[in-house]
């Protein structure tokens, strides 16, 4: 009984975080859209000015343009965070593993940059969608990456590879570089990684250098139909 309640709390907690993220990024994006239109209007007005003020106009146009470009970048990041939030709308859904991975890598790219570690992707194209728990899969990948980021020396690379074979999708995470002693504890203890994979109804092979997660195209139906 208690385990059921704990599981419900966990699921609700994910949904709560997802809701906050998606609502908040929506709000942020609205403000960005207003700033972008205001900068655009400034550009429009400047373009109508007299040619005698050409130099000032050109400078101002450059600034307005730069504002627009920064807004586009920020809005794109907001979109990634918003999609990440929406992953938690339903516990189970059909999703594309490449897109789900890509989204996570964009969001944690800053952590990798700070450690001077690169991410490299080797995704199989036209990979079929799988039916599973995307938020939990992102959490698992995050836990593994977090652990590697703490153990790898700078200028290392983490390679993310996806492939599809025999009604299963494989995700390989391969750290390439020199391992060093980690000074910080992992966000999720290593011994829980296998437990998360079991929840995803997949399996994970952990090698000295890297991990391969295999997920079925669809988890067992019945109790886990889309909500």
């Amino acid at each position: 009984m208690r385990n059921d309640a704990d599981e419900t709390i966990n699921v609700s907690h994910f949904k709560f975080i997802g809701k906050i993220l998606s609502v908040f990024t929506h709000e942020l994006n609205n403000h960005l859209a207003i700033i972008k239109e205001s900068a655009g209007l400034m550009e429009d007005i400047l373009s109508l000015q007299k040619p005698s003020q050409q130099q000032a106009i050109e400078e101002s146009l450059k600034i307005a343009n730069s504002i627009g470009a920064q807004i586009n970048k920020t809005s794109w990041l907001c979109k990634q965070l918003n999609n990440f939030g929406h992953r938690m709308d339903n516990t189970y859904s059909a999703f594309n593993v490449n897109k789900t991975l890509e989204e996570l890598l964009i969001l944690i790219n800053r952590s990798a940059n700070q450690s001077k570690i690169n991410f490299a992707k080797d995704f199989q194209e036209d990979i079929p969608s799988i039916y599973n728990n995307p938020a939990k899969l992102q959490f698992l990948i995050f836990c593994l990456v977090d652990s590697y980021l703490k153990q790898l020396s700078k200028d290392s690379t983490i390679v993310f590879k996806t492939s599809h074979k025999d009604k299963a999708v494989k995700i390989s995470i391969i750290p390439e570089g020199r391992f060093i002693e980690a000074y910080e504890a992992n966000i999720c203890p290593d011994d829980l990684h296998q437990h998360i994979v079991t929840k995803l109804e997949g399996n994970m092979a952990v090698y000295e250098r890297g991990a391969v997660i295999t997920l079925p195209l669809s988890v067992a139906t019945g109790a886990k139909m889309p909500e």
């Binding site: 609205n30 859209a33 207003i34 239109e37 205001s38 655009g40 209007l41 429009d44």
Partner: peptide
């Protein structure tokens, strides 16, 4: 419903 957004956009489209 974003009044400032819609008014600014309208001005730009009218231009």
């Amino acid at each position: 419903d974003e009044v400032e957004f819609v008014d600014t956009l309208a001005q730009r489209l009218r231009m």
